[in-house]
Amino acid sequence: MNRIAAYVIRDLLRSRWTIAYLLFYLIVGYAVLFLSGDISRSLVTFLQIVLILTPLIGSIFGVMYYYTSRDFMELLLAQPMPRRSIFLGQWMGVGVSLGFSLLVGLGIPFLTYGALYEADKGPFILLLALGVALGFIFTGIALITGLITDNRIKGFGASLMIWLLLAVIYDGIFLILLMQFRDYPLEKFALIATLLNPIDLSRVILLLQLDISALLGYTGAVFQQFLGTQTGVLVAAGMLTLWLLLPAALIRRLARKRDF
């Protein structure tokens, strides 16, 4: 697995897409910090950008890389190495290089600005960590769609649909349900619905770290109380880990059964 991951990382770090992605973060990072001049307020902007982009780019890039390296993967499959290493390695490789772009692209602006402003680095580090995790989760899902269908258009479409589902439609349904059942106590439902979606969970974890959490009011207090406890932190971390293990298990399973 490490051999493949190392190869994929080396391959991708030279790819202009990785570099474009990194530069995008670099430019956006400096632009936002420059325009707001205030780290704590720009964090909310970064949060929105990272929560949209890392899953989206993970979905697109994961499936794109799968299909373009499909033939090379066949060459690898003929080599003496287990299939799971090839595909988990590919996942690792794509996830790490996307994570690298995020860490460097946003890290540099933050470090150079952070040296100027004595800001709390905790939320920013958490933002980067969650961004990397989301990148992994959606790259994994993209890889699964690739493994399920050889039809590039279908695979691409499915990967984007899953992203759309978790990034947008889920929240739409969430909101409709909240409206529909407004006469019932909804905190528990809101908490569970948030925990189940990795993008929502990441967003709420981060919001609770920021000033803006005050706007969440009573609802936020319920979340804060839950996520403030040891159980809450464990459940949140557990849910994200589950979202990482799920693709891993599916990739292994699909890789074992599939024909190439």
Binding site: Q48, A167, R182, G217, G220
Partner: peptide, 19 residues
């Protein structure tokens, strides 16, 4: 929405609300 159902504020800064 946030006024009608307080819990919906939990979707603050989500892509759905932005859209």
């Amino acid at each position: 929405l946030a006024h009608e159902v307080n819990e919906s504020i939990i979707l603050l800064r989500s892509l759905f609300v932005t859209l």
